[in-house]
Design a binder for these strands. Sequence first.
DNA 1: TATATAAACTTGTATTTACAAGTATTTTAT
DNA 2: ATAAAATACTTGTAAATACAAGTTTATATA
Lengths: 241, 241
Amino acid sequence: MTTVEKDKKIPQYRQLYEILRKHILEGIYKEGDLLPSENELCIIHSMTRPTVRHALSDLVNDGFIKKQKGKGSIVHQLPKGIGILSVAGTTSALSGQNLETRILVKPNVKQWADPFMFNLSEAEKDSGCIYMERLRLVSRKPLFYDITYIPNINLPRFTSRSFVNKSLFDTLRRFYQIEVKGGEQKLRTISANKKIGKYLEVPAGQPILHLERKIDTNRVGFCFYSSLYCNTEDHALFGIF
Amino acid sequence: MTTVEKDKKIPQYRQLYEILRKHILEGIYKEGDLLPSENELCIIHSMTRPTVRHALSDLVNDGFIKKQKGKGSIVHQLPKGIGILSVAGTTSALSGQNLETRILVKPNVKQWADPFMFNLSEAEKDSGCIYMERLRLVSRKPLFYDITYIPNINLPRFTSRSFVNKSLFDTLRRFYQIEVKGGEQKLRTISANKKIGKYLEVPAGQPILHLERKIDTNRVGFCFYSSLYCNTEDHALFGIF
DNA sequence: TATATAAACTTGTATTTACAAGTATTTTAT
DNA sequence: ATAAAATACTTGTAAATACAAGTTTATATA
């Protein structure tokens, strides 16, 4: 009963979502394939149709499948992602193996920048922020330069954790039970300055994509923030809407 | 009973979605406000909770509200949008009045470019495409340069319609009963070349955001495509995830 | 008065049932 | 053999119900 106990708090629709998502990413269901019908999924996983439909609805929103009335759920293979971002490789497919994370500035407590890219609550301002800079590389080439700002609220031992080749999201989820729910982002293009050019290994003046993102979590009032510079020369960012 | 007949085919959850969306955009519910509770909405609109929750779920996905367990649905005012895109003004708020659409190349039937930015089906290739170029201006300043590709399948009189200051989406919906369901997009940054610089009124070499988008509709197998160049100097693109 | 407790209210999850509408298949009639 | 009609299967919409869990408000207690 341990497995049941472990999954006790995870909703059924979420469990099914994770299973199907995993199967799609593993290639068990390939692009264009039909998923089992909703009624079949009900029987297979001992759920009712609304529960199955909740899982499928989330898969649609995350771009893994599209649904067609009268036909079924069609797999819509997406490029692999980095965190929330999906990256479409123009040359080679992106896999976990040629992906590397390098820490430029280790997590340390700071004051918030003023003005900040998003409006901060008083509680956030008062508590200060944990600051870190990371570089994401794909096939040895730097792709993202990411500055992360996390409110310093009830995150014991956070600054001493290692983030090399580990997802920040995973760390937050594993050690602090913080789940990413969604967020908002602003997109701009800028010309690489000296500093960004150095990190992303591009000449100054090259057009760079700048994302400012606010990331919401399941902890009420707890968001974190990211300023992300991306070189889209070889890899386009990919999104669905 | 005409109004009832007119809305006969529109699902109840969609009707509620449209009402609440309108009220939020009109400012009846302002940022941070709580919407009526789900049970109140049930009584007000004579629906059951699953129907109300369907509407609210769509509003969450489209970024109009966020929900908090035990509290309610909180309005999350977004910048006004252009088509699917949301634009965040850095200087002044964006309103419908200072928005202008200019036709650069009137709709005309063409062959598809080869290679095309997305994979095309045989049916799409055979039928050719309707091509048009438009410029979107905000406060007299060009913001988007948009090249649109629409498969020439069963769209009588399309090339003779006017699109000045009219949404392409509205035209497709009104005259052809085609509704936009969603889509996918690739984001890149480029340096403005001479042509794009001329249209967007920026010096050549300026960083420009390039979006390649495939837009799905309710007509099975019918998508259209857009290659969009955006000057993000004054207005950032805005998105939720 | 201040604090702890209880109640009321809110959204989240889940089941069961029913029918509508689009798609695919099978059967039937020509 | 072909075409039309019927059938089965699929997703879409919707109601009624129940309980869990988080938030707010009201109440009782110290």
